[in-house]
Design a protein around this nucleic acid. Structure first.
Length: 477
DNA sequence: TGAAATGTTGGGGCG
DNA sequence: ACGCCCCAACATTTC
């Protein structure tokens, strides 16, 4: 049989926009048969603006990397099973390889593809590539899923080490014909009106190469060794910032794990960093078992929590105009750069839920729209954790004091000054509570509360009391 | 992966 | 010298 007459393989890219440690790609390449790489955009409703921007550039990068193999990434718009069905018709492909994505929407998609194309005699092959430990193997004694992180992670640590990452295949045979594909621009992922992505461009390099650079920078400059404490300091570059790269699968968790294991001496920082990868695993496991985790509180008593809807307050929160500098700095960092430091995510989220008594789902949606690392599992689990209604969650009565958090984790006010420039001249002593500053200090710093910078939209002590009594209303009985 | 309220202790000022 | 009070420092409990 003429080699060129062999039916091609469809390599379906999804949230795995990488060539390294990509089992589907490796399987397709190893077959020796022609491979047609394809990305299908079906305009998922939960894809936020910042993620859309990232996706565009990540696909751009992936296209370039695939072109280095002498082949082309086919991009299509539409329902995945329909598009794959059409491609089978067009090319005579008889096999599809893809990497599973452990999220309800994607799992449904996989089932559809397997059903529709399987019934047409196509071999549909899903690979595990998203997690360190496949959630279906992480089970309690009783065979259920874990509800507490430490127990979950302990069970993971008792399992075999994650398998080492696969190398990029040397060769990828292309298909003899060119296949209709649409321009990335046609997907409409970039900002349509005003260009709000400037701050994102300044900070991020989407794509596999950007991901690997971010990782090696983090490991080589030694930041990981002080990760245990520096991770809480938004005024320092103490975190890896790998979030968005992991969210789009530009680098695999296994590759990160392996790099840390082989390049770093064991220590507290290293352990802590790997544990954070563990949280990612745990969140994905939770989402698998609670597909509605982004809408519905895991703890049922929270369904009757007396949330308020205050559009003005939500606007102030989302724009970083609450009058609490640490909160505002975080919300503005998010808006400008598509990312927020984790410590500040906790504080800002707590502020929305506990000081403003806004439904956590509203905050979840805002983060999902504005974060470049928006990830259904991590985001929903994180918000439920903060709101106190999640698995292994912080109790509701654990209410962050935004002033104390600022003073503890941004002691010199460097972070606040960076993102709230109207407070730049405030002395550190007052920068987290400008309303307490003597009027001479305010005047000296050219700060006019309620003018150049908002007065606090709520009083901390009062808001705290209100939140506690609202919590009491649902917790009795 | 809190903060505030409340309780306890111990040193020092002072009558 | 002694007891009393104050209060900071730390510990515990409560929300």
């Amino acid at each position: 049989m003429n080699e060129q007459r062999q039916p091609p393989i469809l390599l379906w890219f999804r949230s795995d926009l990488r060539l390294a440690d990509n089992p589907a790609l490796t399987a397709a390449a190893m077959s020796g048969r022609p491979v047609i790489p394809v990305f299908i955009h079906d305009d998922p409703p939960d894809l936020g603006g910042a993620s859309r921007w990232w996706l565009h550039h990540s696909l751009e990068a992936l296209s370039r990397d695939i072109e280095a193999f002498g082949t082309t990434l086919v991009v299509r718009l539409g329902d995945a099973s329909m598009v794959l069905g059409a491609l089978v018709e067009e090319t005579g492909a008889d096999t599809i390889h893809f990497n599973r994505v452990p999220r309800p929407r994607e799992t449904r998609q996989e089932e559809q593809v397997a059903g529709l194309l399987g019934s047409r005699g196509i071999t549909v092959h899903g690979h595990d590539a998203a997690l360190l430990f496949e959630s279906r193997f992480v089970r309690t004694q009783a065979g259920g899923n874990f509800k507490v992180f430490t127990a979950f992670w302990k069970a993971c640590m008792a399992m075999a080490e994650p398998s080492p990452p696969l190398p990029v295949p040397k060769v990828l045979r292309g298909w003899r014909q060119s296949i209709p594909s649409i321009d990335l621009e046609t997907l409409g992922l970039l900002p349509a009106g005003i260009d709000w992505a400037e701050g994102l461009r300044a900070v991020w390099t989407p794509g596999e190469r950007g991901a690997q650079e971010r990782l090696t920078d983090f490991l080589e400059d030694g930041a990981i060794n002080s990760y245990d404490s520096d991770r809480d300091r938004p005024d320092r570059e103490g975190t890896s910032r790998l979030g968005p790269h992991l969210a789009f699968g530009e680098i695999s968790a296994r590759a990160v794990w392996d790099a840390v294991r082989t390049m770093c001496a064991p220590g507290k920082g290293v352990t802590r960093f790997l544990t954070e990868l563990g949280w990612r695993e745990f969140c994905h496991d939770l989402l698998v078992h609670h597909p509605d985790m982004a809408e519905r509180p895991l703890r049922p008593e929270f369904r009757t929590f007396p949330w308020r809807t205050d559009h003005q307050a939500f606007w102030a929160w989302s724009k970083g105009r609450t009058g609490y500098p640490f909160v505002d700095a975080g919300m503005r960092q998010l808006w400008q750069t598509g990312w927020m430091h984790n410590r500040v995510r906790m504080v800002t989220a707590s502020f929305l839920v506990k000081h403003l008594l806004s439904p956590w789902q509203d905050g979840e949606r805002w983060f999902r729209d504005t974060l470049v690392d928006a990830d259904t599992a991590n985001n929903a689990a994180g918000w439920q954790w903060v709101a106190g209604c999640g698995a292994d969650a912080a109790p509701f009565f654990r209410i962050f004091n935004p002033v104390l958090q600022g003073e503890r984790f941004d002691p010199d006010g460097t972070y606040v000054r960076r993102y709230v420039p109207e407070l730049a001249a405030m002395p550190s002593q007052w920068i987290h509570k400008p309303w307490s500053a003597p009027s001479t200090v305010l005047a000296g710093a050219r700060v006019q509360l309620g003018g150049t910078y908002p007065s606090p939209i709520v009083d901390h002590a009062r808001a705290r009391t209100l939140a506690l009594s609202a919590f009491k209303a649902i917790s009795k009985g």
